[in-house]
Design a protein around this nucleic acid. Sequence first.
DNA 1: GGGGTTATATACTCTTTAGTACAATACAGA
DNA 2: TCTGTATTGTACTAAAGAGTATATAACCCC
Lengths: 204, 204
Amino acid sequence: MSAVSCTAAVGRPRAFDMQTALEKALDVFWTKGYDGASLSDLTSAMGINKPSLYSAFGNKEQLFLKAIEFYENRPCSFFKPALEQPTAYQVAETMLIGAAKNMSDASHPQGCVMVQGALACSEAASGVKEVLTQRRQKSEEDLRERLELAIAQKDLPSDTDAAALSRYLCTVINGIAIQASSGATEAQLVEVANMALASFPKGE
Amino acid sequence: MSAVSCTAAVGRPRAFDMQTALEKALDVFWTKGYDGASLSDLTSAMGINKPSLYSAFGNKEQLFLKAIEFYENRPCSFFKPALEQPTAYQVAETMLIGAAKNMSDASHPQGCVMVQGALACSEAASGVKEVLTQRRQKSEEDLRERLELAIAQKDLPSDTDAAALSRYLCTVINGIAIQASSGATEAQLVEVANMALASFPKGE
DNA sequence: GGGGTTATATACTCTTTAGTACAATACAGA
DNA sequence: TCTGTATTGTACTAAAGAGTATATAACCCC
């Protein structure tokens, strides 16, 4: 009985890589949304069959939640790293330009799974819709806190409304997600990002 | 054989109002999306049963298309009327503030059915997704043409990029749709709309 | 090499899906 | 009132949905 529950090396070994399979599942949910993705879609994309999916990931809902968890922590994720830029303007710029580039990137589905994964959906998907909404709101709050820090550091005017500015930036990012999902090019979206940055308050 | 094909008054008369039923169907699609809306959801909301739905509207896809047609032409629609404002700035302002107010209005589902009706969806919904994308692009083009007119009228600087400006405004409107769908209040969205208007080019 | 354990593949369950057949019903015109 | 036509309600179909039972296969440890 080992104290550390390291991946039990007993029994038949799993014949697929969970990370890879999760990535494939993410692509399906990203493209089709939670309601639009059937288990057949998922298993055939993941290259496994249903019992393997269920034993490895629980069920459709848990698979979705693990897929978006993976999505948020991918190395090419743009939101969290942007918060670490030195100035508020650079945070906004990195975030918007990052969104424009990432969401139109042809190496994965267009748009943002946090937006289009379950926007309008059946009752069966209401749980995941709730989670997505909360995650988006959490991002908006994280950005607000970063902007409040910038105000405290005199990097932004003291009368800046951090909540409103954060909401504005997140609104544009969400809009970019829709445009990307509709086929907008990277150049078009970067242009939109720069226009949105034009109204960013000047530091003093 | 009358020349005008007025509603044939032969046979058993329809027991429900098609307009009202269509409005109910719209609400279902608006809330649940095309994939998430089942025929049971639709018929129970519309207060009719399946054969009536099929004989009156064709099938699920045609019902959806008629529902969004109705949506676009409703009196409380905000996009088309905004294009008729006298100045480009007023067009943008009317459109953004209208979007903010309309999409958070509690008298119908939040957000925009043209955005959330079929954003990421199954193959069965790919036809309606295509239509929605085209309609959104058409709106963007209509706005671009209105802005080009403004440039010709010296209402906007001659070096204004009408396509980019139109895309920017539509991006914000789409973002507002997401925020509204996530529960943002009218006040919050109007604030976002005003921030977006801050970067609108000044007339000369 | 055998025993315990876990994954795999096939084949199944039950529910819900979109869509329809058909008999009964309600109206207009003759 | 009779006839033709179109809608209605009930009951149905065939396919697809999510999820599972079971037998077999592959590994580690003893």
